[in-house]
C-alpha cells in the first residue's frame, strides 16, 4: 500500500515552499532560527533518500580495509548493523595500536586514511554536502 504523496514528496514540497515563500519574509531576529529549520529538514530529506547508499559506501570502504567483499544485498537496519559492527572492530584495532606504523606487508595508515575519508564523505553527503567542496 502506498500513500500518495508519500512522506518524501510531502517533505520535499514543504521544504521548497518554506524556502521560497516564507524564508524571504522572515524578520531578521528570527532568520537564524528559520535557517536552522531549513537546514534540519534538508538533512532529513537527504537521509531519507540516501541512507542506504551512504551505508553501502561505508561498507565498501571498510570491506576494502579488511579484504572482504561488501555485501550488496544488505539494506535498512541489517546494513547499518553490519557497518556498525565493522566500525566498532576498527575502533578497537586503532585503539590497540594496530595502525600506528605504516607497514608494507600489513594494511597501513594510507589505506586506513582512505577508508576514513570515504566514511566521512558518505556521512557528509547527508549532513552537509556543501562541506565536500574544498
Amino acid at each position: 500500500m502506498r500513500t500518495s504523496p508519500d512522506a518524501r514528496e510531502l517533505l520535499a514540497i514543504s521544504l521548497k515552499t518554506f524556502r521560497e515563500e516564507l524564508l524571504p519574509h522572515i524578520p531578521p531576529a528570527q532568520r537564524y532560527t528559520a535557517l536552522m529549520i531549513a537546514n534540519a529538514l534538508g538533512i532529513v530529506e537527504r537521509e531519507m533518500a540516501g541512507l542506504d547508499e551512504a551505508g553501502h559506501t561505508m561498507l565498501g570502504a571498510l570491506a576494502l580495509l579488511y579484504g572482504e567483499d561488501a555485501d550488496d544485498s544488505l539494506s535498512g537496519d541489517d546494513l547499518r548493523e553490519r557497518v556498525h559492527g565493522l566500525q566498532h572492530r576498527l575502533c578497537i584495532e586503532i585503539a590497540a595500536g594496530d595502525f600506528d606504523h605504516g607497514g608494507q606487508d600489513t594494511v597501513g595508515q594510507d589505506t586506513l586514511m582512505e577508508c576514513l575519508e570515504e566514511i566521512v564523505h558518505a556521512r557528509l553527503g547527508i549532513s552537509n554536502p556543501k562541506a565536500l567542496n574544498p
Binding site: 532560527t33 536552522m36 529549520i37 537546514n39 534540519a40 538533512i43 600506528d100 595508515q109 586514511m113 576514513l116 575519508e117 566521512v120 564523505h121 556521512r123 557528509l124 549532513s127 552537509n128 562541506a131 565536500l132
Partner: peptide
C-alpha cells in the same frame, strides 16, 4: 534545535581533522 544541529556537525569536524592530519602526517 541549535544543540541538535551541533550534534550533526560531527562529520564536518571530522573532515577538518582528517585534512589536518594528512597535511602534517609526517609528525607520526
Amino acid at each position: 534545535l541549535e544543540l541538535a544541529l551541533t550534534g550533526r556537525m560531527l562529520p564536518e569536524i571530522e573532515l577538518d581533522l582528517l585534512r589536518h592530519l594528512k597535511a602534517i602526517g609526517t609528525l607520526t
